[in-house]
Design a protein around this nucleic acid. Structure first.
Lengths: 113, 113
DNA sequence: AGTATTTCCTACTAAAAAGTAGAACAAATA
DNA sequence: TATTTGTTCTACTTTTTAGTAGGAAATACT
């Protein structure tokens, strides 16, 4: 099995997919990224990253149904896999652990049950 | 000014420098990395990463004094700059914010004052 | 049928991060 | 002074991540 690490951008996208739930399709993810970070991102970059995340087994996807909106292709809806969720948890736990050891941060209360 | 982002490994090393305080020299950082992650790392990788962090202005360093130990070259001691600390805070705040929006994580109490 | 709209997709490129190899240095001990 | 130990340092390569450009679908409206 490959040493599957998560880049910064990848991790954020993975989380955004989790946050968006049913609405997690690439255009929306890109929009959400921009609104949450104030950083611009190209749709292609989002696309290739979601692909990579799927290859790594952190995401899976299926085509959604057509909606009653103006027009447009069907959406591909992404969902986090168990492995993706585990990766996020591991990453979070590790970070929280480091923060709590860093004196300048250690005042915060870190409580994840 | 450049868009100075932090890679995953970079961020961890930066934090380790903060955690190690006076003891933050590259060999020690490498050791600490291995003990905290159970992942092996080469000293050279640590070195080039610390260099990069210094170039980015997140770390600064100076040579320490010789110690009374067995032998060995003087250590280069790293310290986090204000900018480095800000980068860590920004990264932390952003992550905490995303986690709290992710239903699967939102049960945790996130309290950083 | 034609057009506008929304979204996907792929192949490619660029940039950045991570890792390697191996030499060089400084100090203490023998 | 030779050896051992602990450590730095640099140039380079590899791998991974991020970003670009532009075309292709699919759907609804007219």
């Amino acid at each position: 099995m490959k040493e599957t690490k998560l880049g910064e951008f990848e991790e954020v996208l993975l989380l955004l997919v989790g946050i968006l739930g049913e609405e997690a399709y690439s255009f929306k993810v890109a929009e959400e990224f921009e609104s949450q970070t104030k950083r611009e991102v190209s749709i292609g970059a989002v696309h290739s990253t979601l692909n990579r995340l799927e290859e790594k087994g952190f995401l899976e996807s299926e085509m959604g149904q057509a909606t009653a909106e103006r027009g447009g292709r069907r959406k591909r809806i992404y969902t986090i896999t168990a492995s993706g969720q585990r990766a996020l948890e591991t990453s979070r736990d590790f970070r929280v652990s480091l923060w709590s050891q860093f004196p300048a941060f250690a005042t915060g209360k870190l409580n994840f049950d």
